[in-house]
């Protein structure tokens, strides 16, 4: 799996007003310490430090993660849906790259 692949799963058969549990997984090494010449370097970390989910353009969930979140971070979070729409999830890592995934929630 390539780094930065975002996979989102939402349940089927959603009704208006339901609280939907969204599950999202992003492929990322979440490096704790990078080795240089066989020695760990106390800088140059590379991990996802921010995640934000928007539903129809409105922020519904945010996370500030540290290096103590597992490799290939997985999150599940609730969203109350009142109308069908587009769920967009963005991840940012400490090297400034961002990874985005989106899915539609249909009724």
């Amino acid at each position: 799996m390539a780094t930065g692949q975002v996979r989102i799963r939402v349940p089927d058969g959603v009704k208006a007003g339901d609280v939907v549990t969204v599950r999202v997984l992003v492929t990322h090494p979440m490096e704790v310490l990078r080795m240089e010449g066989g020695k760990p370097v106390e800088k140059n970390y590379n991990f996802i430090h921010r995640m934000a989910a928007t539903y129809n353009g409105k922020t519904v969930f945010e996370a500030e993660t540290t290096q103590a979140v597992s490799q290939n971070p997985f999150f599940s979070f609730p969203v109350k849906v009142t109308e069908p729409g587009k769920l967009q999830i963005q991840f940012e890592d400490t090297e400034g790259r961002s990874y985005t995934g989106e899915t539609d929630i249909k009724f």
Partner: peptide
């Protein structure tokens, strides 16, 4: 808008 607190993740210990 989250509706209900119900979430999960994986952490390192």
């Amino acid at each position: 808008e989250s509706g209900r607190l119900s979430m999960a993740t994986n952490v390192r210990m």
